[in-house]
Design a protein around this nucleic acid. Sequence first.
DNA 1: CATTCATATGAATGATAATACATATTAATC
DNA 2: GATTAATATGTATTATCATTCATATGAATG
Lengths: 105, 105
Amino acid sequence: MDIHNKTEEQVKFLRCIGEATRLRILKYIIDEEKCVTDIVNAVGKEQSLVSHHLKYLKDCNIVIARQKAQKTYYSLSHHRLAGIIIQSESLVKELPICQEKKCND
Amino acid sequence: MDIHNKTEEQVKFLRCIGEATRLRILKYIIDEEKCVTDIVNAVGKEQSLVSHHLKYLKDCNIVIARQKAQKTYYSLSHHRLAGIIIQSESLVKELPICQEKKCND
DNA sequence: CATTCATATGAATGATAATACATATTAATC
DNA sequence: GATTAATATGTATTATCATTCATATGAATG
């Protein structure tokens, strides 16, 4: 129908969750809000990098931030997000992604 | 547990479907196999680009190719793929991605 | 109020990936 | 078997994006 129905936004969303550090963050906060320091420890990346990714996720409305004193707690913005994450995870187990071909990892 | 449980493969999968041209291809072939020329017309991109993306998708086992004379027909490799695509599409409608913030598109 | 803790931000760099262009392959048709 | 049709591939360019480093902000605490 129109030029970019909703595909652009869907792409933005999938890109958002389709990055290793961000996906780890999302999985870590999937059922309970967590503060940045805990997230940093969980994903094992630099604090500034984690903050950049959290900003990215927040700007895409995938997570919400709650300020409490000096700490900021992040959680998923929508319960259905957990569903997508879990379903794609289980799909990948069935789908032999890069099992046979010349994949470099 | 181990260093990269299945997150890496899940990321690879999400990256794979999280690109505009590839997602359009996948949506176009979602319920019926299509040949390259039809896909090219559907997505409105260069033939070589479409072929590159099809190769990418095939190498990740997201699509399968069926040769018939000079034509190659592509289809989804797994029925659950359609589910993920449709569910993420409907989730995005609920999730106001980049509706409020400084998003450049 | 200076210091520490928690988090955010801006700029620079490096890596990765999408695209374009030229060309190759393979099969059909005249 | 030369030409056309359908698709694939290799290389170069360009754009995007993750990461790092340095620094800033803001709140708590001694």
